[in-house]
Design a protein around this nucleic acid. Structure first.
Lengths: 103, 103
DNA sequence: TCGTAATACATCATATCACGAGGTATTGTG
DNA sequence: CACAATACCTCGTGATATGATGTATTACGA
């Protein structure tokens, strides 16, 4: 998918991937990739941003001798998902505009 | 609407606004604004980009003593709209992913 | 045992792009 | 005569997706 179209949904996608169960970078990529192409550099950039904006909190553990950082969604992160649903409605209106004008 | 979410749809919106009938900047803003907030600086940036990428061609006329630049969509511009329809399908899959995980 | 894949993290530079602020010029109107 | 409307434009800034690159450990087949 076009990079521009991804903006505005990528962060919500990542939040969704950790919503029901805490997850970590490597796993998030595996979960999200089937539905939306997502590179490591992109994901870690997003995770950092989501942490800075308090959408999630991080917990570091050692698993099989490797660092693993678990991400847990916050109230603000959950609200971000809810807000997205309203944004999506607006997006649907724009889509209707595009479709109507193209019969 | 969030600026990030607009990316990827704004250019298609503008192309749609000139698809059925050639139009000019000032009118495009009036037509698109009810469905998607769009400032002059944003529009003229987009129009310039669409011209550079041969999505449209420009014709300048004088109307009531004022310059008016009419924009006409090209084959490439029409294809861009068609491509967007396919991108939208992918976007719907992502939306489903977000919704399913949030029951 | 040796190389390669898989697991798991991170940073940096670059390109793209929306948008506010600011600018120019003419016509219409109260 | 001032202000809105019409109509165009540029520049700087901030946000952000992504490829390239780097570090380190474990698993596994040849």
């Amino acid at each position: 998918m076009d990079a521009q179209l991804k903006r505005g949904i990528l962060d919500v996608c990542v939040l969704t991937a950790i919503k029901n169960e805490d997850s970590y970078g490597y796993k998030i990529i595996k979960d999200v990739k089937p539905v939306l192409e997502l590179s490591e550099s992109t994901l870690y950039t997003i995770l950092k941003r989501l942490e800075e904006t308090h959408m999630l909190v991080v917990r570091t553990i050692i698993h099989d001798g490797r660092i693993r950082k678990y991400y847990h969604i916050t109230e603000k992160g959950l609200k971000r998902i809810e807000d997205f649903k309203n944004e999506w409605k607006e997006l649907m209106d724009v889509y209707s505009f595009i479709m109507e004008e193209n019969q």
